[in-house]
Design a binder for these strands. Structure first.
Length: 478
RNA sequence: GCCUUCUUAGCUCAGUUGGUUAGAGCAGUAGACUGUUAAUCUAUUGGUCCUAGGUUCGAGUCCUAGAGAAGGCGCCA
């Protein structure tokens, strides 16, 4: 009979009594005199396959070398399990130890580890149940995003990672150079001698380039890494993260909000449909963790219900004016409970204000639009009132701002005026202004933070635990 | 960057008002066990108490400085 390697996720499709081969890594091994059990996991699913070893058949010396973390190839017969926790198990007929794992040194034990500890062994943490769930869900999110845009006829464009424009004000940038920095005298950098003959940086946003694409291909999106050299030490910031930036010609701010809401619901329903066992695992993990917390600190609903609520309800849409009034008249504001008082029109909302709107007042995702122009970027379209711009932020429970976007200023005169007011160089961005000089049209777009979305979908508290290799101030290992 | 808290065995944590030889569970090691489910049972190895100073007869415990981490805040996605 032919033996072929089967992935553990597809065990359910295999006929009983089939001869199969599986390969994977040992999660636990339970050895006893007559029979031993191995939990083998190949990352295709949260479920491990139980391997049963009849100790009369196998050389004890070889079995002794199998430990947590070892890699194995196992041939055997798939049979119904007499145990309670699994339907099938593999009756091993031959085992090849592919790679040993010294149990004195291997850091991942079959027990609960803290996320802080696992961050220190981030190169091995995908071998844990929790992180394998997260990375499978991360993949599913990425796939769903491409699928969504493909179905809507969007063109994926790659915007540059190395960029010379520093005019966006989206944050501190990482300088890119080929100069020998070890042998340069203080303050004597000569960029004309550098690779690009001028100072260049890692991108903080692909938006301006994406606009060029939209004003030719109608609907485009970027999906790439983004770099911010901000000294941000929070559970919601990374120095290197992934951002999705759709940009659409002929869309106004309302079309933009519709697309953002439709996209988020699409992704979340895709995850609910395709990652149910991973979601259940994470939901249980969260429920167990929360047992130790006081009621107030627990989530109001379990993970899967939180996701279902997103799909089942319309996002609340409020203009800045209205949100400002709600906050100003709110109890915490009147009682002085906010660290930042809401009193003067024009202030930027702090995260405590956003959280109040989303988690206390509306109890639903909220899209706030039409912000005062002085707190927003130069490229956002001025409204008729000349006080606000057509900006919109999508605020989610627990993670806060998940999307920021706007209708772009397509009127050349208005855009140039804003650039002058905000000290943005027109000559450096002359290529950008060309889109307004030649065949300008109304257009809109937004940026979605992939890791923040995954945080929401997985319920993970720290953004460093939803990206394989997190980069944060002082941390760039692996 | 700011505020608060934390740092004790490979991991998770106890360690009383400063007092003699710093403990537990898990992991590891040796053994037992006829089907286990993070198996169980017996025995056992393992410590620069984050680092450097200081106070004290005596410091894991108190003080100062530094490093690292977590949570919150700011900047933002």
């Amino acid at each position: 009979m032919k033996k072929e390697r089967i992935k553990i996720i597809s065990i359910g499709n295999i006929k009983e009594e089939s001869q199969i081969q599986v390969m994977g890594w040992v999660r636990t091994i339970r050895k006893s005199k007559n029979v031993s059990f191995i939990s083998l996991n190949d990352g295709s699913t949260i479920n491990s396959l139980q391997i049963v070893l009849d100790m009369k058949v196998f050389d004890e010396k070889i079995i002794d070398k199998i430990n947590t973390g070892s890699s194995l190839s196992v041939n055997g017969k798939l049979v119904n399990s007499t145990g309670k926790n699994q339907k099938y198990e593999l009756q091993a007929e031959s085992i090849e130890l592919l790679g040993e794992s010294d149990p004195e040194l291997y850091p991942i034990q079959p027990k609960k580890h803290t996320f802080e500890f696992l961050r220190e062994v981030a190169h091995l943490r995908p071998r844990t149940n929790t992180f394998s769930c997260i990375f499978r869900i991360r993949h599913a999110c990425i796939f769903a995003i491409h699928k969504f845009f493909n179905e809507k006829g969007f063109i994926n464009i790659h915007t540059p990672i190395i960029t010379s424009s520093d005019a966006e004000g989206a944050g501190e940038m990482f300088r890119v150079t080929s100069l020998d920095l070890d042998n340069i005298k203080k303050n004597k950098l000569d960029y004309t001698q550098d690779f690009f003959s001028k100072p260049v940086n890692l991108t903080v946003s692909g938006q301006l380039n994406a606009e060029l694409g939209a004003l030719a291909l109608s609907e485009v999106y970027t999906f790439g890494p983004t770099f911010r050299a901000e000294n941000s030490n929070t559970s919601k910031h990374l120095a290197e993260f992934w951002m999705i930036e759709p940009e659409m010609a002929f869309y106004d701010i309302d079309d933009n909000m519709d697309l953002a809401e439709e996209m988020l619901k699409y992704i979340i329903s895709y995850i609910l449909k395709n990652c149910s066992s991973d979601l259940s695992f994470l939901e249980n993990l969260e429920l167990n963790d929360e047992k130790q917390l006081p009621q107030v600190k627990r989530n109001e609903f379990p993970l899967i219900q939180r996701l279902e609520k997103i799909i089942d309800n319309d996002f609340i849409r409020v203009k800045y004016d209205e949100a400002f009034q709600i906050l100003r008249n709110s109890k915490p504001n009147k009682k002085g409970k906010f660290n930042f008082k809401v009193d003067e029109w024009g202030i930027d909302f702090q995260s405590e204000h956003e959280r109040y709107l989303v988690e206390k007042h509306f109890k639903n995702p909220v899209i706030v639009s039409d912000y005062p122009k002085q707190i927003k970027a130069f490229y956002m379209r001025s409204n008729r009132d000349n006080k606000t711009v057509a900006a919109m932020d999508v605020l989610f429970p627990s993670v806060g701002e998940i999307i920021g976007g706007s209708q772009r200023e397509e009127r050349l005169m208005m855009l140039e005026k804003r650039m002058e007011e905000m000290n943005v160089s027109k000559s450096e961005l002359s290529w950008y202004l060309d889109t307004r000089r030649f065949g300008t049209v109304k257009h809109s777009g937004f940026g979605l933070g992939l890791e923040r979305l995954i945080q929401f979908v997985t319920g993970m508290k720290n953004i460093r635990d939803v990206i394989p290799f997190p980069r944060t101030p002082g941390n760039c290992s692996y």
